[in-house]
Structures are given as C-alpha cells and as structure tokens.
Design a protein around this nucleic acid. Structure first.
Lengths: 157, 157
DNA sequence: TCTGAAATCTCTCTAGC
DNA sequence: GCTAGAGAGATTTCAGA
C-alpha cells in the first residue's frame, strides 16, 4: 500500500509537526502544510502503515509519577557463551524500568537507561534482575545528576 | 485548576493507556478506564495542565528518515571555568542531533545520545559543534551497533 | 469537588471527481 | 490532487451526589 520512501516536502512537514504536536487535528495539520484535509489524512495513514511513524504517545514527566531517578548503566558480558547476548537482550526487553538499551562499540557491550523510584528500588533492580542474569561480567552505574535534554523528535532534513 | 498530585487509580490508568496509544479517542479511553467521557476528558486536560503529561508526540523511525546512526557520547569538561558547564548545556540544547543529554556521576561529566545520517555527518558534528565548545577535556564516542530497546513509557506504579 | 447526561460544535474519514 | 457530507468524536453546560 504505502510505497516505501522517499519522503517529499509535505511528508517531512507532517513528520515535523506530528513530532512537535502529536494530537494536532488533521484539519490544522492540513492547513499548516498546505494540503486539503483528505490528502493530509491519507499521507498520515501511509506514514503510519509504512512504519515511518512507529506510534503516537504521551510523554510523561517521570518526576510527577514517582520515578525521579535516572541511571545510565554500562554492562559488559563474559565471552564464553554465544547465547549470553541473546538471553540478556530477551530479559532486558521484559524489564519496564529499562527504557533504553543499546549494544555499543567501546568498553561496554551495552548501555542502558533505567528510570526508577529511588536508590532502594535501584538496588533491588541490580540484585534481583541485572545481577541474576547469566554471563554478566561488569556493571557500571552512572547516576543522572540532571537531565539537560530528553527529546524524542528525530531531525527531519 | 489541576491540583498537584497525588494520582488516583483512574489517572494512572489514563497515563498507562495514553503512553501506549497517544491517539486513542477520548471515548475509548473513558470506556477502558470506567468513567464517563466528560470525566475522562477533564482528567486528561488536568494531567496536561499540571505537566504530568508533558506533551503528545509521534515516534518516528530514524532509519526511515535517513538518520540511522546512533552514538552515545561521553564528555568530560575541564575544571577551570565555572561557566563551562552552563555554556556547554546551552549549546547542547541548540543541537537537534543531540536527542538526550544527562549530567552524570562517574568518569564522564555528560552522556549524550546523538542521532545522525552517517559517519561523515558525525565527523562534522564533532569538529564543527562539539569540539568547538570551550572547556571540553575528553570526548569518547560509542557507536550503537544495535538498538535493543527504545521506550518512552514511564512505568506507572 | 467530584460526577454523568445531554446539547452543541468540530473533526474524521469515506466517496466521488 | 480536490470538495462534500454523514457519522463520530470533542467539548461545554447543567444538574446531582
């Protein structure tokens, strides 16, 4: 249905606006990009169906829902089992307090961002979840003193 | 209007559902939490006004908009000028390719997540932007080999 | 101060060109 | 791509717990 790629100028404007205001009405969106509302609506649907728009979401302030502690965790695995990596990743996906996880170059194998209530809860996370995984070699916890920026909008060029 | 805090069970359900489906209709939302559509609507507005919901957004797949490269950058500042930190943070906020930035404990002063087109663009980012900032002592670039998880939904307990 | 019902207003989404 | 319009949903008002 939705052809893959390439995005034209209208699509790019749509993506910029929907990243800034996810609940803008289709009519306002259409007006701002300079298309009829039907044409705009079809483009938004196509962008959703092609996966360019993964989904819509509400961004919640973690401080206001009792999860003020952010930690960046560097994890290194032991090199013995080839299954370690797959198993590690599978378990990480199940932990809701781990919002992000990347396999990276450099000293650590993985970098995680963990959002949680307080130090006691983080201690439980380490002992009951992270340290219980097979094949963990090193874990380094870097606590966020301050959030300078936390943006979800990808620059559309 | 919106009293600060504390969230009751309805608010928590609303936050969970809106994080999962940012564009769910108010009627469906009301039905799923067990309130009338008017009551549900008022609660969503209150959550927005209080800042508990920061905003709504579309989550875009960076691969589909030509920004497939993610880098986690550890930055250390020199200790001489007290203004270094404030100036660094101010500039970081202006760089759209830097999606996230945290001041952290540990070896690095800051951890950044940068999303960008390719290595050439990353090289330009380093030389034209990051290295041009005053007071930079060390920069370590860790490239994301794979994204295991990239979630925005804060667990609501 | 909270609710729900109902009236009204606006937008979505399909159809047709 | 555009316009039109029925139906669906959002938003306000009002009255009751």
């Amino acid at each position: 249905m939705a052809s893959d790629l390439p995005l034209d100028a209208y699509d790019k404007k749509i993506l910029r606006l929907l990243q800034a205001q996810g609940r803008i009405t289709n009519q306002q969106l259409a007006e701002q990009i300079g298309l009829s509302s039907a044409a705009c609506w079809r483009r938004v649907k196509a962008l959703e169906e092609s996966g360019t728009i993964k989904r819509f979401t509400a961004l919640v302030d973690p401080n206001r829902v009792g999860q003020p502690l952010t930690t960046l965790v560097m994890v290194t695995l032991v090199r013995h089992h080839i299954d370690n990596t797959a198993e590690f990743e599978r378990r990480i996906l199940e932990y809701p307090e781990v919002l992000q996880c990347y396999a990276t170059t450099g000293n650590a194998d993985f970098v995680l961002r963990v959002v949680i209530e307080d130090m006691a809860a983080y201690d439980r996370f380490l002992n009951e979840k992270l340290f219980s995984l097979a094949g963990i070699s090193q874990v380094s916890s870097n606590f966020a003193l301050r959030e300078i920026k936390n943006e979800t909008a990808i620059p559309i060029r």
